[in-house]
């Protein structure tokens, strides 16, 4: 596995091209380009759950995909990848494709397609041990249908189905920890990433692809329409998610935790919240306790993560 060299990677033929209909400032295209560039040494077959990425990149008769690409439905991307990977193994065994043909399978899905409706198919595929990388683009709500809450939406965030009113202050439940759920399957490689830390992201893609068996990458994906931030601020918001420890960058490799970026002086959660209109109500007086609660949530998760790193490496 080579060290990521962005300059030389820009010479590679892009396998995901512009002309798609992702919103201005959307991070999904950026992330997919980073993932496919990191995978440039391999023949890749991609899968896509129903969602923003799928509908905007495959508008017939156009396609942004320079690799074979399959969209079946919303909840079954991991099952689709399972089927293609099974076919790949069988076709080799039957001698119908050459034994030395090497393909890497990469599935893309959003948080709705992963945390919620696709969780069963994901868990099944991980347990069965199919060899593919599952990249989850986490924009923390159902953005394609118009910003509805998912189990990935952070507590107190406004969405169209967790609105803010006299009786409710946005989403009532904290964000589900999908990374730990996936890691509990005992698969070889699970990691988080952010497009703001692209070398880290691309290194993790290469690491994941170096393994046989299922691997998982959770990528923070700012959605300016849903998070209510300026279109030019997507990377800034992503970086702030990392620097506040809201979205820590780490990997779990064969059960061992490794935090790949430790902010020297973590910024207060408020610095990330205030960039996004979905938390505007928390910036009003009277909601200080909610901000403190979120800060506490971040702190305890960060502390636990560090302890897991320490403990898993002591084994």
């Amino acid at each position: 596995m080579a060290v990521i060299n962005i300059k030389s990677l820009t010479d590679e033929k892009p396998r995901f091209v512009g002309g798609h209909r992702l919103c201005a400032g959307c991070n999904e295209g950026t992330i997919v380009r980073q993932v496919l560039l990191a995978a440039h040494e391999y023949d890749v077959v991609a899968f896509n759950a129903t969602g923003c990425l799928e509908v905007t990149t495959s508008v017939y008769p156009y396609s942004s995909w320079g690799v074979p690409w399959l969209h079946e439905a919303f909840e079954n991307t991991a099952a689709a990848a399972s089927g293609a990977e099974a076919a790949y193994k069988a076709l080799k065994r039957f001698g119908d494709i050459p034994e030395d043909k090497k393909i890497k399978f990469i599935a893309f899905a959003g948080d709705g397609g992963t945390y919620d409706i696709g969780l069963q198919a994901l868990s099944g595929a991980m347990e069965r041990g199919h060899s593919f990388l599952y990249v989850m683009l986490d924009n923390e709500a159902y953005m394609n249908t118009g910003i509805q809450r998912s189990s990935s939406t952070p507590e107190f965030a406004w969405t169209t189905t967790s609105p803010v009113g006299a009786a409710k202050v946005g989403k009532a439940q904290p964000k589900k920890n999908i990374v730990e759920i996936v890691a509990a399957h005992g698969i070889p490689y699970v990691a988080t990433a952010s497009p703001s830390h692209y070398v880290d992201l691309m290194t993790k893609v290469q690491k994941a692809l170096s393994y046989e068996g299922p691997t998982f990458l959770a990528v923070y994906s700012n959605c300016n329409r849903g998070h209510r931030n300026d279109t030019g601020d997507s990377i800034k918001v992503s970086r702030m998610a990392v620097e506040t420890n809201y979205w820590p960058l780490y990997e779990i490799e064969n059960g061992k935790y490794h935090i790949t970026f430790k902010p020297r002086n973590p910024k207060p959660i408020e610095d990330w919240l205030k960039l996004q209109g979905r938390f505007a109500h928390l910036m009003k007086s009277g909601n200080e306790d909610k901000v403190a609660e979120l800060q506490q949530w971040v702190n305890s998760k960060w502390e636990l993560l560090q302890k897991k790193e320490e403990f898993s490496n002591s084994l």
């Binding site: 079954n76 399972s82 089927g83």
Partner: peptide, 22 residues
């Protein structure tokens, strides 16, 4: 290659991707 999936929905999803793989 026998894929003992976790549901019928995934059975057909896996069958579809396998079939489109030739």
């Amino acid at each position: 290659e026998f894929v003992p999936v976790e549901s019928e929905h995934s059975a057909m999803s896996a069958c579809l991707a396998a079939s489109l793989s030739g």
